[in-house]
Amino acid sequence: MPTYKLMYFESKGRAEVIRLALTAAGQEFEDKRFTREEWLKVKPTIPQNQLPCLQVDDRLIPQSGAILRYVGRAFGLYGDNNDESTRIDVILGATDDFLKNLINVYYEKDETKKEELKKDLEENKLPQYFNLMEEILKENNGGDGFFVGNKMSIADLMIYDLTDQVASFVTPPPLPPKLGTLIEKVKNNPKIKEYTSKQASK
């Protein structure tokens, strides 16, 4: 069996959904979290000089999206056929598009502009994104299960992670009903629940 080591910083960021995917799969992994000082020392040895990076035995895999899909394929979290995998890709792509709005808010230096962007996020961008996800969810089993098939995938984990992280710097609108039920389902998955409880107690 391969050994897995996920390298990132002491934050959720782009690595958290990968941690969640490995956790949901029941796969043990080393959760290496660099300090800024440690990162500067190892940076030249990491592909593309950026994190997250997943080490599988002696192989290093960069790019968060590639890592997430790699883990999804390895552990049955990426759909059971090409249609389901493509559906997951659509959700991940729409989420990447949305994340640009969060990044704009996060890095905005002008406080007045930052507040304007946050307001637009809360009142417009987030509701639009959540409603889009609700409609996509309803296309599978009427929205009463998961985004694809009858089991959790990296798409469900991605949306759960996004709703969790976005709440740390804006006040999100209420989730549409089916999406809210899905988020609770992921949150209460025994492996995810155990992981998040451990993280909260650190």
Rank of each mutant, 00 (worst) to 15 (best):
P47I: 01
I136K: 12
D120Q: 10
K138I: 09
G26V: 00
D120R: 02
T35D: 02
Q63T: 08
N150A: 13
N141A: 11
N81Y: 06
Y78S: 09
N49A: 15
E108T: 15
E123V: 13
L77W: 14
V90K: 05
P127S: 07
R87L: 10
E135V: 08
I136H: 12
F147E: 02
G145M: 02
I103Q: 05
G72D: 06
D58H: 14
G72L: 00
E108K: 06
L137F: 06
R19E: 07
Q27R: 10
D97R: 02
G145W: 10
W39I: 12
Q63I: 11
K100D: 12
L54D: 04
N104D: 15
L22F: 00
L117W: 13
R73A: 14
R69I: 04
K100C: 11
I46S: 07
K41E: 15
G72Q: 03
N141D: 14
L60Q: 09
D58K: 14
E135G: 11
L126H: 01
D31K: 04
T35C: 06
Y129G: 00
R73Y: 09
L22R: 07
N140M: 11
K138T: 08
Y107P: 01
G72N: 04
K109W: 01
T23M: 01
N131K: 07
T45P: 01
A21Q: 05
A21P: 01
D97I: 11
K118G: 00
T86V: 15
E123M: 15
L126S: 00
T45R: 06
I67E: 05
L54G: 04
I61F: 13
I103F: 13
R19Q: 05
N82L: 14
T23A: 06
F146W: 15
G65K: 03
F98A: 02
V148N: 03
V71C: 03
Y107V: 14
R36Q: 12
R69E: 11
Q27N: 02
E122N: 09
V56F: 12
K138Y: 01
G65W: 08
F130Y: 15
F34A: 02
L68N: 00
I18P: 00
T112A: 11
F146L: 04
L126W: 14
Q48I: 10
Q48K: 14
E135H: 12
L92D: 00
V105M: 08
F147C: 00
V71H: 03
V105C: 14
L92N: 08
E122Y: 10
L68M: 09
L60G: 07
I88Y: 02
R69D: 02
L99S: 04
G76R: 04
F98P: 00
D83W: 11
N124V: 13
F98T: 00
K32S: 10
L77P: 00
K125W: 13
Q63G: 06
I18C: 15
F29W: 02
G79T: 03
